[in-house]
């Protein structure tokens, strides 16, 4: 008796009904070639399962847990991404992993796989603003910033959990845009994107208008209500951006 491939596969998949199963098992006992075919299918199945098993161990992102619990208003759900990166939380310790996951917009400029000098640092698996960028995020107001400032703030807004967030545009050493939120007395990156080459000096467009889509998409996904106006922004700074 011969068994076609689909029958052998069905046997390995536990889908063969008893009469056919018994017949195949009986044949296997005295047909080494059939046995090899069964073993090859078993090996493939086991190999796929083994290789894909670790994916089940990965932590599930909060946003998916929220969605499954129905904790999120459907209206707030962004569509699937185009070039826009979804907003995520990161826990990988290395800069390169964090940076690679945060950095989007590969169309502009070189890959940003090392920290731009002194503006962003990885600490405890979080990517935080430092130096001039941190200063600007803490001090600079959209309403009063100089048009040629090294760091330009696009928007200030509150996230759904109440945290203050600000989008920014950094001209040097390479054009970089992003969104940072105030978490535990630091500015934590939510997204970083390569920005298109900067406008000429004297371009008075608001920084918000020059933001890459990745950044504006992240703002859209995070923001609760409207961006802060000048008074609210100044008041938030007065409280050191604590909630």
């Amino acid at each position: 008796m011969t068994f076609d491939d689909e029958t052998v596969m069905a046997y390995v998949d536990g889908e063969l009904e008893p009469p056919a199963r018994v017949a195949l098992e009986a044949a296997m006992a005295c047909d080494p070639q059939l046995l090899r075919r069964v073993e090859a299918q078993r090996a493939l199945r086991a190999r796929l399962q083994r290789a894909c098993a670790p994916l089940l161990e990965e932590p599930v992102p909060e946003r998916l847990l929220d969605a499954a619990r129905g904790a999120r208003a459907p209206a707030a759900v962004p569509p699937l991404p185009r070039a826009r990166p979804p907003v995520r939380r990161w826990s990988w310790p290395q800069w390169s992993a964090i940076a690679a996951s945060l950095v989007v917009g590969a169309l502009f400029g070189p890959p940003l796989l090392h920290p731009p000098d002194g503006s962003v640092t990885a600490r405890d698996g979080r990517l935080l603003a430092t130096g001039a960028l941190a200063q600007a995020l803490s001090r600079q107001l959209v309403s009063t910033q100089a048009p040629n400032a090294a760091v330009r703030i696009g928007l200030s807004f509150r996230r759904r959990d109440g945290a203050y967030c600000r989008s920014f545009l950094l001209r040097a050493p390479s054009p970089l845009a992003g969104v940072a939120c105030r978490e535990q007395d630091a500015w934590r990156m939510q997204v970083l994107a390569g920005a298109p080459p900067g406008p000429a000096v004297g371009d008075y467009r608001p920084a918000a208008a020059a933001m890459p889509a990745a950044v504006t998409g992240t703002v859209d996904a995070l923001i609760a209500g409207e961006p802060l106006d000048a008074a609210a922004e100044a008041a938030a700074r007065g409280r050191a951006w604590s909630q």
Binding site: C52, L55, L56, E57, E58, V60, P61, R63, L64, L65, A67, A68, P74, V77, P78, P79, L80, P81, P85, P86, R88
Partner: peptide
């Protein structure tokens, strides 16, 4: 079901970010 849905989505999209967006959309 989330871990399994994510794994299946990963086999479709080939990258984790699209996969998670896909799972979120599917849940909604």
């Amino acid at each position: 079901l989330l871990p399994r849905l994510r794994r299946f989505a990963r086999s479709l999209t080939r990258n984790v970010h699209d996969a998670d967006d896909l799972v979120q959309l599917a849940i909604e």
